[in-house]
Every structure is written in structure tokens, then in C-alpha cells.
Amino acid sequence: MATVDLKDVRKVYAGGVEAVKGVSIAIPDKALCVLVGPSGCGKSTLLRMIAGLETISAGTCSIDGKVVNAVGPTERDIAMVFQNYALYPHMKVYDNMAYGLRNRGMPKDEVDKRVRTTAKTLELEHLLERRPRELSGGQRQRVAMGRAIVRNPKVFLFDEPLSNLDAKLRGQMRVEIKSLQRQLGVTSVYVTHDQLEAMTLADVLVVMNGGLVEQLGAPLDIYEKPASTFVASFIGAPPMNLLPLRGGQLVDAVTLPEIAGNAATIGFRPEDCEVGADGAVSGDGLRLMARVEGVEPVGAESFLYCAAGGGKIVVRVAGRTEVLVGDQLPIFARREKLHFFGSDGKRV
């Protein structure tokens, strides 16, 4: 129904602080774009600029091909789900959902039809006569979703909508948001600091850092080819192991494959580590000895926290492990699973 185009968008606050330093993102129609990054990276500011709640200092924001820089939030035809839900506490659930429709002068029976249809989709029918304070966190979240959906807007904006829910509910709502967004086919922008949410929801994933886009692409592409050490350490849980290279050498390395370019950092994912001596695993790759400092059995897998190569690494092994703290382990990572980063942190 609509595309969202950001061209070199900047935000400078009155105090001179530059929160967003030139961001360009083209979100195709019906796509779910996730902005992810640590707090203070400018992702929420960017979302609020798309919503029209913050002015755009420079650059353009277009929705459906029209530049909306000077258009207020009231006229942008967007819907937003807030982190704290922002439900109107003095209105019943029904009126919360109907508010936006009534403001646009929709006839009463049409409002009623839309509210009830949406309530049915979200299984909110039995809550319509309640007030927000009589609802649980998960129910409030649903009402906030309902209030956005019922309007049938051009764009959905989500500002960390799941961060106030407990882990189980969060997982459940994540799946639901994804399927709803697919089903409705509404272009969406979703802000989160949770990399798991970002990976599972995104059609287009945007990793932000310090007011700039660090990397943009499909989630798995970013996971497999992180553009910088920042992305490598932000996406993936536990994050990628990064070890410093000094003069092309790694401390304690048993064997080190050919180094790409003038790399300053070598990286490999915890799940790409194989445990075993020279005889057990073979091939070209990185071999090093690691001293186990901690063991975390999670059930289906176990994480070994080790000191190796002049830094700390995490090794993932399937199922249970017999390894004990203090053990010396030979670690192997295949050549094709290694990532190299230059001294500026960029991938080489």
C-alpha cells in the first residue's frame, strides 16, 4: 500500500546534539523494516521523525512517494504502537479503538463494524467494555495493536512494543505481530534493541550505531556477513568471538590460516567452533588452545566461556558437556567460517 523513503535524514536537537547523522533507507511496500541498535543510536528518533512527532532537520522523508517533512502526524495516515502502549486511561477499550476513526468523521455503524472486526481478529471481544487499568500487560499490548490496525493506515510504526512483556509473552506476540503484518500487508517500521526480535521479524534489517546506519540488508545476510565488528558483536546471541591480531599473528594460535588483507581482528561465531584435537577435526582453519573459565548448560546446548588468543571467547557445543572449569580445550574453526575486520572495524 505504501513505501517509506528516507533520504539523508538528519536530526539536530536545539542543544546542538546530532541524534541522527544522515540516514537513507528505502522500505519497499508491505515490508517489515526493523531498526535495531543500542540505546542512544538514534533509532527511536528516526521512528518519531517518520511519525511526524519530531521535526526533520535535514533530508527528506517520503511516504507513498510524497514528501511528508511538513505534514503533521495527524495527516500522515500512520499508526503507532508505543512502548508503554499509551492507551487512553479514561476510555473503554472500545472507545480507545474507535477514537481515531471518530476523529476522521467515520459514520457510527461503520466505526462499530470495524472495531468489532478488529477485536475479533485480536481476540479482544470480551474486553471491549473494560478500561485499560483493568487489563493485563499482554491485553494492553493487544489493545494498542488493535488501535493501530483498526485505522487501516498506510504505515505501522512500532516503538519497542514488546519490551514491557515477560519473556514468554514476548515470544508469542512476536510471532503474532509477524503473521498479522503479513496478513494485512501494511508497510511497517519496528524499533527494538533486542537482536532476537530484530532477526526473527525483519524483512529488512537496519543495524544502527551512533546516529548512522551500520549495515542494512536481509537478517541472515547480516548474520553471515557482518559489515563491521560492531554488527558482529551486536547481532547473534551469544555474540561473535572477536580476537585481536597483532602484526598478522594471534597469541596462542596453534595454526593460523592465511590472513585476509591487513586485518586487525579475527572473528568466528560460537556455533562455528569445533572442539577436538588435530586428529579429530581436520582441514584448513584456525586452531587454538582455550582454557575453560565457565560452563553454562542451557539444555539443548551448552556454552563454554573460555580464555584464548589474548581475549575471551564463547564456544557452543550441542547437548550436554563433560567439560569442567579449568580444562584446556583444543578449538578449531574452519577457514570459511572466519571473519576478518580491519583496524577501522570494517570487514575486509
Binding site: 511519525a51 512527532l53 500512520i78 499508526a79 508505543f82 481515531g100 476523529n103
Partner: peptide, 13 residues
């Protein structure tokens, strides 16, 4: 809360 006012603005009020 300021977000309520913002939500209302987005809701077309």
C-alpha cells in the same frame, strides 16, 4: 504522559 498526546495526534485529533 506525553505519549498520550502524541498517540491522540497520530489518531487524527
Amino acid at each position: 504522559p506525553k505519549t498520550l498526546i502524541e498517540a491522540a495526534a497520530i489518531d487524527g485529533a
